[in-house]
Design a protein around this nucleic acid. Sequence first.
DNA 1: CCGGACTCCTGTGCGC
DNA 2: TGCGCACAGGAGTCCG
Length: 303
Amino acid sequence: MPELPEVETLRRSLEPLLIGQVVERVEAIRPDVVRPRRRGAPRLSRPEPVTPRRLRTMLLEGCRIDRLDRHGKQLAIIAQHGSPVMVVHLGMTGQLLFLTPNQTPARDDHIHVRWRLGGAGGDAWLLFRDPRRFGRITPVQSEADLIAEEWSRLGPDALAVRAADLAARLAATSRCIKAALLDQGVVAGVGNIYADEALHRARLHPCTRSDRLERSEVLALAEAIRTTLRRSVRAGGTTLRDYVDGNGRGGTYRSDLRAYDRAGLPCRRCGRILVGSTVAQRTTTHCPHCQPTPPSTTHPHRG
DNA sequence: CCGGACTCCTGTGCGC
DNA sequence: TGCGCACAGGAGTCCG
């Protein structure tokens, strides 16, 4: 759920609270949400066993937090030089929640990892909560590994994607444009909400073949992606049901949505009724007037 | 290699 | 009110 604007809002809300904090103790209540990436391992082999002590080290026990970085939907918690780096993927329902010493969480179910943070005035906590457990925490050895092994697999960050980069990547695939936008290797940070929003803003039908876009269309799309995401970040992201920032607060961009979740409602640009369908196995909404079907689409869409 | 389908989970909202 | 089903913001894996 959380897409780039929600993860960026989370990063901004947590960073001032976490910088300088020392992780005194880590409690991995459900260690299976921690998934080190295994390179070159046989696909069906079991994960390597990790001792509890080693696990806590990978989860920054004993480290002092330096800063929080983001690329696309991934959030990296970076401690002082020489420490491991923790990459958090929120999946559909993941949350990172910060609690001051006298705070209790709004809900205490589905909490999978707890970090006890040292500080004056008692202990603060950071919680990883995720009902559906599609979220993951991927520990990497260093900041260099974060860049080389995790973020190098991702496309450019969507908040600053350049038309030339987008054009090159879209030209390399015959998939429909919506499927391409959802592929984090093409551009990092766009999910189902902002794919529909950006395509509506750029007046592109979601089933347009990626490699058949005109130069001007890619230019409009890159612009639409940046503008949509920038505005959503300014609104603190989109809260549909679960998303909250590090302080438990939701975002307000939902009321600004033009396409997503508005099938059957009038287009805010032309007044025609928005059409719902399924594209790339995801619920999709577009305007039949502003986003007309192009001459060649990849596949007919259902709905 | 590529693209599409399936799968992993729990919670919610709807129709009957 | 209760039950069962469809569906949900993601993405890894498998198969044709």
